[in-house]
């Protein structure tokens, strides 16, 4: 198989995932950290599902399911100035994500 890119933001290939798996990273959180997968501009929206499916394949067996990585804000990269404008010294935000 030629070079297959899974994470386009961080240039992570299928072979990178295979090597990380061989090095003992058997869950998506660990694969993410070890390869940089899902840590770029799209924050996993483009690659996490593909990586999860590939990880399930590598694990083998009938269980073609794997836990996704924890979703973190922001939904979309947003300029710091937008948030600075809403800063206030009031009580903590009660609607923690």
């Amino acid at each position: 198989m030629g070079k297959v890119i899974v994470c386009r933001c961080e240039d992570v290939t299928l072979e990178d995932l295979r090597q990380a798996f061989a090095a003992g990273h058997r869950d998506l959180e660990s694969l993410k950290r070890f390869t940089g997968l899902s840590t770029g501009f799209c924050q996993g929206k483009c690659c996490a599902a593909h990586a999860g499916r590939f990880l399930a394949e590598l694990r083998g067996g009938d269980d073609m399911v794997c836990d996704p990585t924890r979703t973190r804000p922001l939904l979309h990269p947003t300029p710091a100035a937008c948030f600075a404008a809403i800063a206030s010294g009031e009580a903590p935000d009660q609607e923690d994500a």
Binding site: T39, F41, Q43, R72, P73, L74, P77, T78, P79, A80, A81, C82, F83, A84, A85, I86, A87, S88
Partner: peptide, 22 residues
């Protein structure tokens, strides 16, 4: 997110257009 952005821009105002990722 808002307090940190405000503090960051107070110290380095030219970062206002820089996008927060995560």
């Amino acid at each position: 997110l808002s307090r940190m952005s405000a503090s960051l821009l107070r110290l380095l105002p030219r970062l206002g257009g820089v996008k927060i990722l995560r």
